[in-house]
Nucleic acid binder design. Structure first.
Length: 609
DNA sequence: ATAGGGTTAG
């Protein structure tokens, strides 16, 4: 038995039923109508199972309308799964399937976190059934590809799109850009689609800018944004969120402030998301008080607003304030999630609040039923390590109920180096290199341990191993913003116009520091060279160059803000403390994971990072 | 029935 009622008639009936919405109105309807009406009013999975039995008994499982209705109950994914299963039912007659049916099922899967692969399976069935996809099919399919992030998959879907040769609209092209920008190694393909698009509104611009930001190509993101303005395309709040993320990544406070005034001027809709992005920008560009101020003026806050400001305070070493904000949040009736606990634990970690951190770790599970994830264990290990409790941290890792990841191992190794547990650190690092032979960080950690032990020959061997395996060390770099321009420095950088003056300044800084009793900590230097050269090498570290550049080009007393891509080394840390005193400058430095506010020869981290 | 966004330990 197949669908015997014409589709348009069914639709009219459906609409009547939907508007009258009473169970008594289908007394005289055919069994098929009854099934449809039942489906319309069905609100539980159990109900759905009963209806399913009926549908199968009556043999209606091939009615596309019934299937579509099944699929459209996407609030209950089980029903989508059932609709999906019907596609394979033994007597299925594919001639009744249409694109609308498949689109509904694909949409339901594509919008659900872990079912994106299923969306693609259904798409494949669609093609196998010779149902032609349309402009409504591809946005969902491409969204699923974007979620999976597999470039090959995305390209094959793109290929199928070209094959059908229908008039592709901008919605599809927009998702195509987004798909390529979300797949590893796909950004250039995305750029190609983007460049070839004739008329673009803010959507593909946002997708493209966001794509660059996710890859850490923030300068490209900012450049593209200025091109967008030149072409007169009006940005919306989503574009602005992406641009703010770029500022956050660069640590470009001036640019971020400019974006904020741009938002005011262009009257961009200030959504909670946009405000959150602003909070994050201020906090991560070094002005956590401004972030706090903005947070206080927000009328609507989400858990993300709280998290951003708590994490911000944590990064600046204001752990107690972060903790009190957390309690304020609970008092406001906001239910904490796993992410805010990561922020809270990292606040405890960065401020040495070991006991409190342990309490919150238990509190999280007992009070809110949140099971600690690997990230929470990571925070605990980091906290114990920072506090110098390397042995306790090692025990903690051994007792963890989940497999420690490489980040946790690296935390331990680094702590071993800092606290003199060389043997332990060496053995963990060797094991980790075995497991992850291509990760440069592991080699650097081991080689740093050898440097601190003065085992130069072992250190050289590690470097040879890296060369042989073709692994490159990520060069340390520091960026600094000056007069609306962003300057980037790498160690020994001679690419700047001013490089001679900068080097002279660095030497002068060195002389002044020595007068103040500074002893270069040469064990930080990666290379096996004689002491004097090592000192030279230290002096050419990118942050020292950036500071010298700032001292040369800003008026006395102006605070200096710099952003490092790696963690600050011991030598640069003690040097910067002295420089802040000698030159009477506040120096705000962001390293890979926190802020250091240098003032009067002291640092806000209390030498605790 | 169609597109784009934020927070997370080292």
């Amino acid at each position: 038995m197949q669908s015997s009622i014409p589709k348009n008639k069914l639709l009219i009936l459906l609409r009547t039923i939907a508007t009258s919405a009473t169970t008594s109105s289908y007394g005289s309807a055919s069994p098929e109508h009854r099934c449809l009406t039942l489906l319309q009013s069905c609100n539980s999975f159990l109900n759905l199972l009963q209806i399913q039995t009926q549908i199968i008994k009556l043999g209606f499982q091939n009615n596309p309308l019934i299937l579509t209705n099944f699929a459209s109950k996407s609030s209950d994914l089980n029903s989508v799964d059932y609709a999906h299963c019907f596609l394979f039912s033994p007597h299925s007659n594919t001639q009744f399937y249409d694109a609308f049916l498949f689109n509904t099922i694909i949409k339901a899967y594509a919008l659900t976190g872990n079912l994106k692969t299923k969306a693609l399976w259904v798409f494949k069935i669609m093609l196998d059934c010779r149902v032609l996809p349309n402009n409504f099919t591809y946005p969902f399919v491409l969204k699923a590809c974007a979620g999976i992030g597999d470039l090959n998959l995305g390209m094959s879907v793109h290929g199928s799109l070209l094959k059908f040769g229908f008039d592709v609209n901008n919605h599809v092209l927009n998702t195509l850009v987004h798909m390529y920008c979300s797949c590893r190694g796909g950004i250039e393909f995305g750029r190609k689609v983007f460049d070839e698009m004739a008329k673009k509104n803010s959507v593909p611009w946002s997708a493209m800018i966001g794509g660059y930001v996710r890859l850490g190509r923030s300068t490209d993101a900012v450049d593209l944004f200025s091109q967008m303005q030149m072409e007169g395309i009006c940005p919306d709040e989503i574009t602005m969120v992406a641009v703010l993320c770029a500022c956050t990544d660069l640590g470009a406070l001036e640019l971020g402030k400019w974006v904020q005034s741009f938002i005011e001027e262009k009257k961009v809709n200030k959504s909670v998301h946009l405000n959150n992005a602003l909070i994050d920008m201020f906090a991560k560009c070094g002005d956590v008080d401004e972030a706090l101020k903005l947070f206080r003026t927000m009328s609507e806050r989400s858990i993300v607003s709280w998290t951003s400001v708590i994490v911000g305070l944590a990064m600046h070493g204001r752990g107690l304030q972060a903790v009190s904000l957390f309690h304020e949040m609970i008092g406001d009736g906001v239910v904490p999630d796993d992410v805010v606990f990561i922020g809270l634990l990292s606040a405890c970690s960065h401020s040495g609040l070991v006991q409190r951190g342990k309490e919150y770790f238990d509190f999280m599970r007992k009070e809110f039923g949140i099971l600690p994830k690997i990230e929470h264990y990571g925070c605990m290990v980091d906290m114990l390590c920072r506090a110098g409790l390397v042995r306790e941290a090692t025990e903690f890792v051994q007792k963890m109920p989940i497999e420690p990841n490489s980040i946790i191992w690296r935390t331990l190794i680094n702590a071993c180096r800092q606290h003199g547990e060389f043997k332990l650190g060496e053995s963990i690092a060797r094991q980790l290199i075995k497991n992850e032979p291509m990760s440069e960080a592991n080699y650097v950690l081991l080689s740093n341990i050898y440097a601190k032990m003065f085992h130069w020959e072992k250190k050289t061997k590690i470097r040879e191993k890296m060369d042989k395996r073709g692994i490159k060390k990520i060069p340390g770099s520091t960026i600094i913003e000056l007069n609306n321009k962003i300057y980037k420095f790498v160690a020994g950088d001679m690419s700047h116009n001013q490089y001679k003056e900068i080097f002279e300044m660095v030497d002068e800084m060195g002389r002044e520091m020595k007068k103040a009793g500074y002893v270069p900590s040469t064990s930080e230097v990666m290379l096996d060279i004689d002491e004097e050269d090592k000192e030279d090498n230290l002096n050419r570290h990118s942050e020292k160059l950036a500071i010298a550049f700032a001292l040369l080009n800003t008026s006395p007393g102006t605070p200096i803000r710099i952003v490092k891509n790696l963690r600050v080394c011991n030598d640069c840390h003690s040097a910067t403390k002295l420089i802040s005193k000698i030159y009477n400058r506040e120096i705000i430095a962001r390293d890979r994971n926190r802020f250091h506010h240098f003032k009067d020869g002291l640092c806000s981290c209390n030498d605790f990072w």
